[in-house]
Amino acid sequence: MHPIEVSQIAKSFGDTQAVVDVSFDVKGGEIFGLLGPNGAGKTTAIRIVLDIFQPDRGKVSILGGPMSEDKKDRIGYMPEERGLYQDIPLERCLLYLASLKGTPDQKARKTLNDYLERFDLAEHKSKKVKELSKGMQQKAQIINTLLHQPELIIIDEPFTALDPLNLQLVKDVMQELRAQGVTIIMSTHQMQQVEELCDRILLINDGINVLYGNLDEIRQRFSGHAVMVRTGSNLPELPGVKDISSHNGDFKLTLMEDTTPQDVLKTLTARDIILEKFEIAVPTLSEIFIRVIEEGDAK
């Protein structure tokens, strides 16, 4: 049994259908990307998983069954709407929230000090939360999610407001947690980070699954319709090639549905075009995202 199993959930608010039909599993010890355009239903799906909302239909199993009060202590959640008590010192705020997760005070203090050091917030722990910068509050929010050492983490847009240094720090922490067997669901619009971190993804659009599976397999699935070519000269029009565009000195040849890269290679060599580079173009996740969403909207 996986830490999270979601089967055909649906949820509407009045006349608005936020989630139509979403299903996915999250395996233990993986980083799972929950992606989708704004208003796709990601946050609603997360709230259903966490039992904040009751689904209209469908089933959710979390950490081996339905959500219970005991399980809340084993889950770390960083919601889309960031929230910390603004009028109290950072340390007191984080220790209180950790205590609500059932963490003993001594243990929470030790873990907190370690995280504050690592996230460069130790000297700010006595400041009121509202006195911290946006980036510092974001790091504090991440610490709050991790402080009780959960086995399942659900984190919404973890990289917002972070500079490159802190962004790398958060990525390192997430990779360390994965290595320790912690399961992470990450919802973000930063496709580059998804490509670097996620093992599998689910792309939701208009409340339904549109893309789901292993990230490498998905990219392979979407490759093959384009090749990257570098030549000493300009390229003529080629049969089976729908479009030729320039990318950093290379040409990207977008192929027609019934054309294979081998067909193009044969054509190029037959025309005595000197090739410095010929490789199958693997699309970025961002390109896949745009393509899938646009195709979905066109339908």
């Binding site: 966490l50 904040i52 009060e69 809340k72 202590d73 889950i75 959640y77 919601p79 709407e81 960031r82 929230g83 910390l84 008590y85 603004q86 929230l97 609500l100 997760k101 709050n144």
Partner: peptide
């Protein structure tokens, strides 16, 4: 109201009932 104002409600209700 403070929980709403600080937007901590979602964190708190996923920690306690």
């Amino acid at each position: 109201a403070e929980e709403k104002e600080n937007r901590t409600m979602e964190i708190v209700v996923t920690s306690i009932s």
